[in-house]
């Protein structure tokens, strides 16, 4: 079944995207990503530790030829920082993809939507493939589309909260509002959350804490892989309507 997601000419075979943060070690990161079947992994942009020169690097475990590396601007609370990190990420030389985060608040890590919009517009003009981490406001999603985003990434719930898809109705409206791919990013806590996102019609789901923070991350990665596939298939299969009353599944004809 050809169900490839295409963003700006880049093909994504798996609709599960995974983060690389919060794992016990690089070995666990690698195994979890393999179990997830993901072909996109997010990474953060940080200073090289020049004092403690460990010989190992994340990219020794995650092969950039095998996986699409999606750098983020995590930790950026204003437009200038987000632009700086984005440009550095691109210069590190893998692609023009950027998961743009402009954070508004430390407790919720909700996006600063005004800053996000400004940064999206600037980076899109510079040729970045901008994937903005946003809230679940359809008006905001439309603004991001108009500003040149290549997809929209509404949060399901706060990063790392595991609360799942808090506002499925808004996500549904976003799907009707924009022509861009919609990728739920943040808040997925367990497999059913991922399935719900895909059943709504989302194009992909990005999960980090939901996998890395599980008791058995590798098992959860596999669960999420199946969850996303199931949700996608169910969405395309066309569910039955919800009804208040019953409709029998067995015939009346031939009753004694």
């Amino acid at each position: 079944m050809n169900d490839i997601l295409i963003i700006k000419g880049i093909e994504f075979k798996s609709r599960l995207w995974v983060g690389t943060g919060k794992y016990k070690d690089f070995d666990e990161t690698k195994k979890a990503i393999e179990a997830s079947g993901a072909d996109v992994v997010t990474v953060a942009v940080r200073r090289v530790n020049i004092i403690d020169r460990k010989s190992e690097n994340l990219l020794d475990y995650i092969d950039p030829k095998k996986y699409k590396i999606l750098p983020n601007t995590a930790g950026c609370y204003n437009v200038e920082d987000a632009l700086r990190y984005s440009r550095l990420a691109r210069e590190a030389g893998i692609s023009d993809l950027i998961k743009l985060e402009v954070i508004g608040d430390e407790k919720t890590l909700f996006p600063d939507t005004i800053g996000l919009l400004k940064a999206t517009e600037i980076l899109a003009k510079e040729g970045f493939i901008v994937l903005p981490y946003s809230n679940d406001d359809p008006i905001m999603a439309k603004r991001l589309e108009d500003a040149g985003a290549a997809a929209v990434m509404p949060l399901g719930a706060p990063i790392g909260s595991g609360l799942g898809i808090r506002n499925p109705y808004n996500i549904k409206i976003i799907l009707e509002t924009v022509k861009l791919p919609v990728i739920v990013d943040a808040g997925v806590g367990t497999a059913s959350d991922a399935t719900i996102a895909m059943e709504l019609g989302c194009d992909a789901v990005l999960i980090n804490t939901g996998i890395a923070g599980a008791k058995d991350p590798i098992a959860m990665a596999e669960a999420m892989k199946h969850a996303v596939i199931a949700g996608r298939l169910a969405c395309k299969a066309g569910r039955i309507p919800r009804k208040l009353y019953a409709t029998a599944s067995s015939p009346f004809d031939g009753m004694l």
């Binding site: 983060g19 690389t20 943060g21 919060k22 997010t42 942009v45 940080r46 995590a74 990420a89 804490t209």
Partner: peptide, 8 residues
């Protein structure tokens, strides 16, 4: 000097 590290 920056590089890519684990992140969400």
């Amino acid at each position: 000097v920056v590089n890519f590290v684990g992140g969400g």
